[in-house]
Design a protein around this nucleic acid. Structure first.
Length: 418
RNA sequence: GGAGGCGUCGCCUAGUCCGGUCUAUGGCGCCGCACUGCUAAUGCGGUUUGGGUCUCAAGCCCAUCGGGAGUUCAAAUCUCCCCGCCUCCGCCA
């Protein structure tokens, strides 16, 4: 939720943000109007409540003969209050709807436009060339006994896979490496619930545009999270934090319906319904948010570098940002089988937008204020395994193991086909 | 899943049976002031949160006793639903 005081004093800034996103700037004026109407309704109801309270108090001190008249007036006012409160409730709901419709205000310097209008920040490593015909991660993983999508489909359906043997060990290796790096950088490791209440899902903004992506357990009124950003952001909801910043590295399974992606990345484990992920999440003073964002990006870069993967960093354009994000960087690794860049990690600065909705505050100079929240992938396991297999493949079907992973893979320098 | 108990403005707590000076008591902590070589102690005052009004501030007003709905002129207090915690039983990795 955007700051309404800021909106009132500088609506043009919000309109410009909408234009950069390719969103409707009229939503801003609808929000301003809803805000005006709500305040008018509140003022009316407050005044009636005051009068009604006074009348009600007069009842008990009224003399016997005055009493019927006093009571009658109190009753009339009570009815008026009831009506005014109904109007206020309606105005509150209208404001909330209009408020939720306006996404976060993009930060200065974010490229305007849509998915194609990203800006390349940097390249790390060289795009590899192979003097043999490259295999894709599914062929490699099947040969290694690391990935089993056929049985995944048999047991659970399409877009499910088993990680077996070296595949399972690679997951544990990646998670250990990621958590170890995060802990060293000062993040508090967390194993988060993968099932959350509706408030947690709603508070993080995942029931808006992405509602159809989310699994719901109808009989228990719980949702399966698509990322541990959800439990980590809701972790401190409704709290007043001192001693900022708080930094967490959450490990959890992630579940996505992939409802709108029929036919896209159907092969292998690049896009599946269930995968595991290590996610960084920071609560910081809003004035530190930009610096924290660079730090999260640096941690992502360090992790991918340790995996000896070539990748690039892009800054995503305004129109491709989620509703909570004010700026976002993606790290995209080279996928040899498809000769293209594939998103492996992503980090968003949500400024105080998400914290306002979740009620996460700190004691600032002018009293309580929402904190800033930021999230960043450290390792999306399945996809990372896919890229590792492809990039580090050799002509004979063996796969080079990056040094950083060897401690958890029996010291192996390479994985051999069965 | 069954039975019972509990939830008060940072923490503890009075109040709930029997609705109205509850504008929520007291203690601890915290902040300010006074006193005092310093500290401590003591005294006085302040200390929930959100919203409205307002150029700002002050002031004033409204709401807030886990959440919601209801009864009533009036709800911390009565009724219903929900949430959470605790104890016992059942089941269980």
């Amino acid at each position: 939720m955007i700051d309404l005081r800021m909106l009132r004093s500088d609506p043009d800034r919000v309109r410009a943000s909408q234009v950069a996103r390719g969103d409707d700037p009229a939503l801003v004026d609808a929000l301003l109007a809803a805000d005006d109407e709500r305040r008018a309704a509140v003022t009316r109801a407050d005044e009636l409540r005051r009068q009604q309270k006074e009348a009600s108090q007069a009842v008990k001190s009224a003399s016997k003969e005055d009493r019927p008249a006093v009571l009658e007036r109190a009753k009339e006012l009570a009815a008026a209050v009831k009506q005014a409160e109904a109007a206020q409730t309606e105005a509150d709901a209208a404001l909330r709807t209009a408020h939720l419709a306006v996404p976060n205000v993009v930060l200065d310097g974010v490229p305007p436009g849509g998915e194609q209008d990203y800006r390349v920040v940097t390249y790390v490593g060289d795009v590899p060339t192979y003097d043999f015909e490259v295999k894709d991660h599914l062929d490699l993983g099947t040969a290694l006994g690391a990935i089993d999508t056929e049985r995944g489909a048999k047991v659970s359906g399409s877009r499910f896979a088993f990680l077996t043997g070296w595949g399972a060990l690679m997951e544990l290796a990646l998670v250990n490496l990621a958590i170890g790096q995060a802990v060293e950088a000062g993040f508090n490791p967390v194993i988060a619930p993968a099932l959350v209440r509706p408030e947690a899902m709603e508070g993080t903004g995942f029931l808006g545009a992405h509602a159809s992506e989310v699994y719901k357990l109808e009989s228990d009124d719980l949702y399966l999270v698509g990322t541990s950003e959800v439990p980590l952001a809701a972790f401190h909801s409704g709290e007043v934090l001192d001693e900022l910043p708080y930094r967490y590295a959450g490990f959890s399974s992630c579940f996505r319906r992939e409802a709108g992606s029929h036919g896209k990345d159907t092969r292998g484990i690049i896009r599946v319904h269930q995968f595991d992920k290590v996610e960084m999440f920071s609560y910081v003073d809003p004035s530190d948010a930009a610096a924290e964002h660079e730090r999260l990006l640096a941690h992502e870069i360090a992790f991918l570098t340790a995996l000896e993967l070539p990748f690039r960093v892009i800054e995503v354009a305004a129109g491709d940002l989620g509703s909570s994000a004010a700026r976002k960087y993606d790290c995209e690794a080279w996928l040899p089988s498809q000769q293209r860049w594939l998103e492996l990690t992503s980090t968003s600065n949500c400024t105080d937008f998400q914290a306002r909705r979740l009620g996460v505050r700190f004691r600032g100079e002018d009293g309580l204020a929402p904190v800033a929240t930021l999230n960043g992938t450290l390792c999306a396991v399945g996809r990372t395994i896919a890229v590792l297999l492809e990039v580090h493949q050799r002509a004979d079907g063996s796969v080079h193991v990056p040094e950083a992973l060897r401690p958890w893979l029996a010291g192996r320098k390479e994985l051999l086909p069965l």
